[in-house]
């Protein structure tokens, strides 16, 4: 390296290609740690999973055999897998609209209010910061059929008690409610940030233009301006609820009678209870395909969205 500015400038003009090559090398060196990490913890394991899904490897076994698409044909005929996939989709279909809708509602209320903003923000955000396993245990007590707060309340109001987690009709519903409770806070915070970034001018222009009723203002200004934030929240909610696992593992273990069997839990059982690692890998590949699909949808939406400069 040269120490003064002037020789550096002449060097640039005379050895442009050499300079460019040096710059490229520096760029690769600087990004190498990130690249290595990305390869080591993301790309290689994913590839390994895909490869494993074509084998009959058993967890811990010294040998494995290439069996082609056998795992996948097996999956296609596996009733537990289909039940698990159906449950997962149902769970996502309940949690995403409700956690986003309620998150938006709470965000709008907090943004519209003048007092206690920080308190409400913190209160709704608390479930996000808490450990879900621990919270699941709290929910388990709340949902306890005889001493749980929820049943006691329902009983006091004169409605029939339910065995929330043991009744096949209610178990998935109960888990979805916990999922909504948990996801709402993060959605609210993200949407609050989106709401804050809407210029006040736009609301004022809308007021002058005559769009001043709460509903009209919402559909004329808030919703379209919130579009990017909302689509982001929708997609990450979908991906996160697709990954539902903790509550199932702690509260229901997929029961009763597979009523709460979800994709990741099936994968976990196949891989770590039954040690059928190859088969679990195939389930993981299906799971990854869904997540990839959602990510592509998100990318498409992000592409379409209009930037205002």
């Amino acid at each position: 390296m040269t120490t003064t500015a002037l020789p550096l400038a002449t060097e640039r003009t005379t050895h442009r290609s050499g300079q460019a090559r040096a710059e490229a090398i520096v760029a690769y060196v600087l990004s190498a740690p990130a690249m290595v990490c990305l390869l080591g913890i993301l790309i290689l394991p994913t590839l390994a999973t895909v490869v494993l899904s074509f084998t009959d490897w058993q967890f811990g076994a010294p040998t494995l055999r290439w069996i082609g698409l056998d795992n996948y044909t097996h999956l296609a005929a596996d009733r537990v897998f289909w039940k698990s996939l159906g449950n997962t989709v149902l769970y996502v279909a309940a949690v995403v609209p409700l956690s986003v809708g309620l998150g938006l509602g709470v965000a709008l209320l907090i943004e519209a209010g003048t007092s206690g903003r920080a308190f409400y923000r913190a209160a709704y955000f608390l479930p996000v910061t808490a450990t879900l396993i621990a919270m699941a245990t709290v929910w388990e007590i709340m949902l306890h059929p005889s001493i749980g707060l929820i049943n006691v309340t329902i009983d006091a109001l004169g409605f029939p008690k339910q065995n929330w987690l043991k009744n096949p009709d209610w178990a998935l519903f109960s888990l979805a409610c916990i999922g909504i409770w948990q996801a709402l806070g993060l959605n609210m915070v993200l949407l609050l940030a989106g709401l804050k970034s809407i210029p006040r001018d736009l609301y004022e222009a809308a007021a002058v233009d005559g769009a001043d009723g709460p509903w009209t203002r919402f559909v004329t200004v808030t919703l379209p301006m919130l579009g990017p934030a909302l689509s982001f929240v929708l997609i990450i909610s979908a991906i996160r609820s697709f990954q539902v696992f903790d509550t199932v593992a702690v509260l229901t273990e997929g029961g009763p009678n597979k009523a709460t069997e979800v994709l990741l839990y099936t994968m976990y059982q196949e891989g770590f209870s039954f040690f059928r690692a190859g088969y679990a890998a195939a389930i993981t590949v299906v799971f990854l395909a869904f997540v990839l699909l959602l990510t592509l949808v998100k990318a498409r939406i992000a592409e379409k969205r209009v930037h205002y400069s």
Binding site: P199, A205, V208, V221, M225, H307
Partner: peptide, 21 residues
Amino acid sequence: LLPRERDVAMVFQSYALYPYM
């Protein structure tokens, strides 16, 4: 009265155009 009821028209410094329209 609300701005709408006052029947005024305003041009803002930032123009305040709706970017999605």
